[in-house]
């Protein structure tokens, strides 16, 4: 049955070459923990991606309840946390997942660095990776404000003060992020938009580039 559906689509769209491109890639011995236990360090990248997927899915569920305005944001998070079935788990996954992404990404960065895998011909993939590092820190910063509780509010005030202290572009950056002089209604709306649309969009684009390059070049060889 599945085969029939596949053949039907394949006849019309010729998906076999595309599918083989995606499915065919080798796992060399030196990165396979089944052969060398120490190769578990090569799992960090995959686990980072796995947690990113968890973040995207749990985040999608959070937006089913979350209301991004200063009157209702806190109430909606409170409701989600205390009333909604499994709400506390979904929010917990998104909360702890954020930390986990950072940890895994940090470990992955260290693995790539200490195996010298950023060297020619993989320079571009390293740069894309570091850009994703920044995007994810940005996601962490903007997401922290969204529950609109005390720690969220004051951490953002401090964060924006730091951004403001940057010479030349500081004032502009602060106004751009805060949407005005104070951290308030505009700021929440902007952080929400950045957290939910701009940065995830950038992240998906960069992830695509990251995976395309690794597939094209193959993983770096044994040391």
């Amino acid at each position: 049955m599945l085969q029939k559906i596949y053949d039907w689509v394949d006849e019309r769209l010729d998906i076999t070459p595309m599918w083989r491109d995606i499915a065919d890639h080798e796992v060399p011995e030196h990165v396979n923990p089944a052969h060398h236990f120490s190769a578990f360090v090569y799992c960090f990248g995959g686990l980072t991606f796995f947690t990113v997927v968890i973040q995207i899915l749990s985040g999608m569920f959070l937006t089913m309840y979350y209301v991004p305005d200063i009157i209702n944001a806190y109430e909606s998070v409170y409701y989600l946390q205390n009333e909604v079935t499994f709400g506390v788990i979904v929010r917990g996954m998104h909360h702890w997942g954020a930390s986990l992404v950072i940890v895994m990404m940090f470990l992955h960065t260290l693995r790539v660095f200490f195996t010298g895998s950023y060297k020619k011909p993989r320079e571009l993939n390293w740069v894309v990776g570091v850009l994703m590092f920044f995007v994810i820190l940005g996601l962490g910063f903007t997401g922290y404000l969204l529950p609109w509780d005390m720690k969220a509010y004051f951490a953002t005030v401090v964060g924006l003060e730091i951004a403001e202290s940057v010479p030349v572009v500081g004032d502009f950056t602060k106004t751009l992020l805060a949407g005005g002089e104070i951290v308030g209604a505009q700021t929440l709306a902007r952080f929400f938009a950045i957290h939910v649309f701009f940065l995830p969009g950038a992240l998906l684009g960069l992830l695509g580039a990251h995976f395309y390059m690794i597939r094209k070049q193959g993983i770096s060889g044994p040391l």
Binding site: Q81, I89, K151, F154, I182, V183
Partner: peptide
């Protein structure tokens, strides 16, 4: 990961009071 989220629910403080 799921055990962690069940053992430690995400914290929530009181509503922001600027």
């Amino acid at each position: 990961f799921l055990c962690l989220t069940i053992a430690h629910p995400a914290p929530l403080e009181r509503v922001a009071d600027p």
